[in-house]
Design a binder for these strands. Structure first.
Length: 504
RNA sequence: GGCCCGUUCGUCUACCGGUUAGGACACCAGAUUUUCAUUCUGGUAAUAGGGGUUCGAUUCCCCUACGGGCUACCA
């Protein structure tokens, strides 16, 4: 008779989706799928001032890229909509009013200036059970005066009235029992002067109305958990409260602290899932996708940053993660992000992918470099030949451009000093023999090449490097004869002829 | 400052009272590849400190240190 599991991810559309955010979604998703539950996406956009146009769509795009499609979302809808907090505005006030009626909350009329003055006058000022008696609120003002202020539509907020010296305990799925004392917490604003709820009220009300059973969020939310617990207790009953899981943070690779988007620029790696251009500043923050990461690898590496299955396996597909995910193996401590290891995951995934599934993305990247690919079959052969050498997808153009067109530049310096007439004659002979060859494959080519070398009393090693530079343009790339075999007899001979002139 | 959370190689981590403390990334060395990369083999490298509990603590408890988070009419 256990009720269906419903897990929600509730981002605020204020910018790009960073690593920590994606990992939170991922664990939400894995947990929901593991138990056959629903994964819900709710947008928390109650703060108009921080709302960034386009951010919601961006979040959806990132989830789609990662393969983490929600069952219910603003775009898709669902039985518990709307899925945007700004569209649920009307439902929050009644709960705030209910709290006031029951004596768990109160009106506060203090202006921003008055609060600011307090903060300056009193160090570490908190609006709490010890200071609220000196403030302008419905606890200190006469009933008539409060009514008058409300009637005059004086700007006001509704604050929770934290009880004195009450231990608030709850069981976190990751951390076990966590206890706070209510006296330590301040009287958080629940309903803002503009009528919008704060996160604290909204998250509780929405989770209740959407029948959420499990809630995952970052560890930075742990200190505000007691407020949420109290709201659940006052409003809906603790028995209906979702189970909480506070995920450890993803830290900067150097030094300490939470990983931020600045760190990416500073240390040269992406921190967002996909490129994000802030419409207000036009500032671009690079994404894993655009830097050549496979979504499979991205999901894999994020999953392992704070979880493992207890074996030594490190490469997991999303399906595998779903079946093997378990809450009790999620770590408590934060993890520093290591870009080198991230690239290793991607390399592993590229090696594992077959050429066919890499095709469209590689074609796109080649296109960006001005290389049009028409022959699908040829492209697959190219990918098969070079994929083991690519750590990110964007390595492909560099590793394979010479397989589509003659090199634009030649590393002449590494050949010319040792170039002589004997070598020139050798290549002239090689061209003649190549033209006569019956078969054109790597093995035959190598055999033929070595025979010509022997006949000309030249060491194969002395002409192998020149041949490579002739075909590739530089000292890199896969085995030379594989390259010659792939680009074909005509192109091979043509490139040799062209290069001979250059080396002379 | 207060409150909360955390602490195993440089990094990600395994061990859930008894192990020569294992793996991966990175690094170093060797082999393969007549290029570069890949690949393979090997190596360096860790339980923050102090008290308990216990026959025995990386593991359980306490204290200290260190790190992190929160302390908005932001989420």
């Amino acid at each position: 008779m256990s009720k269906k599991i419903r897990v929600r991810f509730a981002p605020s559309p204020t910018g790009g989706l960073h690593l920590g955010g994606v990992r939170t979604v991922l664990y939400n998703y894995l947990f929901a799928r593991h138990y056959g539950g629903d994964f819900i996406l709710r947008i928390e956009d109650t703060d108009q001032s921080r709302f960034v146009p386009g951010a919601e769509k961006y979040i959806m795009d990132c989830l789609a890229w990662c393969g983490l499609e929600p069952d219910e979302s603003p775009a898709k809808g669902g039985a518990y909509g709307p899925y945007r907090q700004s569209e649920r505005k009307s439902s929050y006030k009644q709960y705030a009013d209910q709290l006031i009626k029951d004596g768990y909350a109160y009106y506060a009329f203090d202006t921003a200036q008055e609060l600011e003055a307090k903060r300056i006058a009193i160090p570490n000022f908190q609006y709490s059970l010890i200071t609220r008696s000196a403030m302008k609120n419905s606890l200190t003002l006469a009933t008539g005066e409060v009514e008058q202020l409300l009637h005059a539509q004086t700007p006001h907020v509704i604050r929770i009235k934290m009880p004195a010296n009450e231990d608030i305990t709850f069981t976190d799925m990751i951390r076990g029992e966590v206890t706070f004392n209510s006296s330590q917490a301040d009287d958080k604003v629940l309903l803002k002067a503009d009528g919008m709820p704060t996160y604290h009220l909204a998250v509780v009300v929405d989770d209740f109305l959407m029948k959420i059973t499990h809630a995952f969020r970052g560890e930075e939310w742990l200190p505000s958990a007691p407020v949420h617990i109290l709201l659940w207790k006052y409003l809906f009953g603790l028995d209906k409260m979702p189970q909480w899981a506070h995920l450890p943070l993803i830290l900067k690779p150097d030094g300490n602290g939470k990983l931020s988007k600045r760190d990416g620029d500073r240390l040269g790696f992406p921190v967002f899932a996909m490129n994000w251009i802030d419409p207000r500043t036009n500032e671009l923050t690079k994404g894993f996708k655009e830097l050549g990461f496979l979504p499979e690898a991205f999901v894999n590496l994020l999953a392992m940053l704070g979880w493992n299955d207890g074996t030594e396996q490190e490469i997991f597909s999303l399906e595998e993660l779903v079946t093997k995910f378990s809450m009790d193996r999620v770590h408590k401590g934060g993890a520093k992000f290591d870009y080198e290891k991230a690239k290793w995951y991607n390399h592993e995934w590229i090696k594992r992918m077959d050429a066919g599934s890499l095709k469209s993305e590689v074609r796109r990247l080649l296109q960006q470099q001005g290389i049009e690919v028409n022959d699908d079959h040829y492209l697959e052969k190219v990918i098969t030949l070079v994929k083991d050498r690519c750590h990110v997808l964007s390595d492909f153009p560099q590793q394979s451009s010479f397989l589509f067109a003659a090199p634009a530049q030649y590393d002449v310096d590494s050949v010319k000093p040792k170039w002589n007439e004997q070598k020139q004659l050798f290549f002239a002979e090689a061209i003649r023999q190549f033209e006569l060859m019956q078969q054109w494959d790597a093995a035959d080519l190598e055999k033929e090449f070595k025979e010509i070398a022997a006949a000309n009393q030249i060491k194969p090693g002395d002409v192998l490097m020149p041949l490579r530079v002739m075909l590739v343009g530089g000292k890199f790339g896969p085995a030379v004869f594989d390259i010659a075999a792939l680009i074909g007899r005509e192109a091979t001979i043509e490139r040799i002829k062209k290069a001979i002139k250059m080396f002379a």
